[in-house]
């Protein structure tokens, strides 16, 4: 009985799936990290400066998804790291007043003015100053650049490619080796 259960489990461990964005493996993903209105304002004002505009995909619903995803990510960090990162958002919100002689907080500045301050931070000769943007940038970009609209704009279609490759491996397992057409080539010069 136990042996049979073990063999079923092993089969399940190895079986490929459908490469779903929200896999159904019975593992509940945590709700967003709870934050107050001041923290929310600080995060959103940093997002406004860090995220691209122009022809980059942006709309309120997408921004909402990015914001939510960031808060979910915070749940999986150690408490001290999550709290540390949230303090950095507050610091960035107030940094125009404290360090750069601006009369107002980041959220009150225009995006360009905020960007100028972030450029100064990025090119500071002082490592601790440069590090201020490291975590917020990683958090915001890892969420934004994982969204379907952004993938589409980049010409990145990982799911379709993954499903093709799962099918290819299955074919190889069942019928032996792959064909030449299964090779991956995009540039003739590299053949």
């Amino acid at each position: 009985m136990r042996k049979r259960r073990a063999l079923e489990l092993i089969e399940e461990m190895r079986r490929p799936g459908k490469a779903l964005r929200h896999p159904d493996d019975g593992y509940p993903i945590a709700p967003p990290y709870p934050v107050g209105p001041k923290t929310e304002r600080a995060i959103r004002s940093v997002m406004r400066v860090l995220l691209p505009e122009g022809d980059a995909p942006r709309n309120p619903e997408l921004d909402e998804r990015v914001y939510r995803q960031m808060l979910v990510s915070l749940q999986y960090m150690s408490k001290s790291t999550a709290q540390g990162i949230l303090s950095v958002f507050h610091l960035l919100e107030w940094i125009p007043v404290t360090r750069f002689g601006r009369p107002s907080r980041l959220s009150k500045l225009s995006r360009d003015e905020g960007s100028e301050i972030f450029r100064a931070i990025e090119s500071s000769p002082l490592l601790p100053v440069r590090l201020l943007l490291l975590a917020p940038k990683a958090l915001i970009f890892s969420s934004y650049f994982d969204q379907p609209e952004v993938h589409e704009a980049l010409g990145y279609e990982p799911r379709k490619f993954t499903l093709d490759r799962i099918a290819l491996r299955q074919r190889i397992i069942e019928h032996g080796d792959a064909d030449e057409e299964d090779e991956i080539h995009h540039t003739e010069a590299l053949r």
Binding site: E12, P16, P23, D25, V72, S73
Partner: peptide, 17 residues
């Protein structure tokens, strides 16, 4: 946690946590 092969996807948002 235990995450079988079928739960893997190329998306970071749920893979990383």
């Amino acid at each position: 946690g235990y995450h079988p092969t079928s739960s893997f996807s190329p998306y970071l948002a749920e893979s990383q946590p």
